[in-house]
C-alpha cells in the first residue's frame, strides 16, 4: 500500500462514518490510556462509532496527522470534522458538549469522565464496532 492509498483510505473512513475514532488498539483492547478513556467516553454516550487501530503500520499515524494537522492519537471525528484528542473529548464529555455534538442525551449518571484508575460503576460496553 502506498502512502497515498493509506491517506485515501483514512479520508474515506472519515467521510463515511458519522463518528470515527482513530486510536491505539481497539475499543475492547485499547493499547494506550488516552485511547482507552476516549473510547470509554464514547461508549458511555451509547452511540455507534467506527474505530480504527493506527498501530499496525506507522504510516497510518503519519498520514492521519498530515491529513488532520493534529499530532497525537487518539483523534475523534464527528461528521468529518476533527473534534480533538483525549483532553478535548473528556472536557466535552464533562461539559455536555460531547452529547450535543453527537446529538444524544447526556447520560444520566454523574457526567464525570471515566478514569483509568477509577472503579467503573458498571460494565462498559466495549465492542469493536469497526465492520
Amino acid at each position: 500500500m502506498t502512502n497515498q492509498e493509506i491517506r485515501d483510505f483514512l479520508q474515506n473512513a472519515i467521510d463515511e462514518n458519522h463518528v470515527m475514532l482513530f486510536m491505539k488498539g481497539t475499543p475492547d483492547a485499547p493499547r494506550c490510556g488516552f485511547s482507552m478513556r476516549t473510547s470509554a467516553a464514547l461508549n458511555a454516550m451509547g452511540v455507534q462509532y467506527a474505530a480504527m487501530d493506527i498501530l499496525p503500520d506507522p504510516r497510518i499515524r503519519e498520514e492521519l496527522s498530515a491529513l488532520s494537522g493534529w499530532p497525537t492519537i487518539p483523534q475523534l471525528f464527528i461528521d468529518k470534522k476533527l473534534i480533538g484528542g483525549c483532553d478535548i473529548v473528556l472536557e466535552m464529555y464533562e461539559s455536555g458538549e460531547l452529547a450535543q455534538a453527537l446529538g444524544v442525551e447526556q447520560p444520566e449518571e454523574e457526567p464525570r469522565a471515566p478514569e483509568a484508575s477509577a472503579p467503573q460503576s458498571g460494565p462498559v460496553g466495549l465492542e469493536n464496532r469497526l465492520s
Partner: peptide, 10 residues
Amino acid sequence: SRIEQHQLVY
C-alpha cells in the same frame, strides 16, 4: 475554538 487553542500549543 478549543481545538485551535490546542493546535496553537502543539
